[in-house]
């Protein structure tokens, strides 16, 4: 979160609440695969690096044509992958998993080694490819069967009224 806000401050001259929220999520995503295997100091690095990578990804996404509206892919897809790779890098033997070599005594020890990083990339890559392909097939199948998008008119007026017949805010306030 601090990383994201810092980058915000440097590149945009303002720290946004949106950036703080997204940055916090990005850091948490990064540490998710790693949290049982790294030291607290390693965790700081994992969070900071993941947040930076996600920031770059979100910026690229905003320039591209794909409308990943709330950066679900930029933060969770890319952040998760980064975290998984960093898990391989920083995983520490002192936390009890006998599979991993290295000492893990130094707080910033890079204990996992290249071997574990390769395993991480393989495992996570398979998940990513399977998820993408299967989801795309599912979306396309549902598009054929029931249609994916709300009608243009509904999208224009807002999905709350169009699909649910309710509004969150009265018109006087909105």
């Amino acid at each position: 979160m601090l990383t994201w806000m810092l980058i915000d401050q440097i590149t945009r001259r303002e720290m946004t609440a949106l950036g703080a929220g997204t940055g916090a999520v990005a850091g948490l995503v990064g540490i998710t695969p790693a949290c049982g295997f790294v030291t607290p100091m390693g965790a700081l690095l994992v969070g900071a690096i993941t947040s930076g990578v996600c920031y770059v990804m979100a910026t690229l996404r905003a320039r591209g044509k794909v409308d990943d509206s709330l950066d679900a892919f930029a933060v969770h897809g890319v952040g998760g992958f980064t975290g998984a790779v960093l898990t391989g890098l920083f995983s520490s033997a002192s936390l009890g998993d006998a599979k991993i070599g290295g000492s893990g005594v130094s707080p910033f020890a890079v204990a996992g080694g290249i071997e574990q990083v390769v395993k991480q990339i393989m495992g996570t890559g398979i998940v990513a490819i399977y998820s993408f392909v299967m989801s795309f097939i599912l979306f396309k199948a549902l598009q054929a069967v029931m249609g994916l998008r709300a009608s243009d008119e509904v999208e224009e007026r807002g999905l709350d009224i169009g699909l649910h017949g309710e509004e969150a805010y009265s018109e006087a306030l909105a």
């Binding site: 998710t32 695969p33 794909v66 892919f73 897809g77 574990q116 996570t124 979306f139």
Partner: peptide, 23 residues
Amino acid sequence: GALDFAGGAVVHVNAGFAALAGA
């Protein structure tokens, strides 16, 4: 032998790439 403690691959990468497919 890939490590995933609390769902980096299962939760986040999985959801993230599905989200990309959806978008």
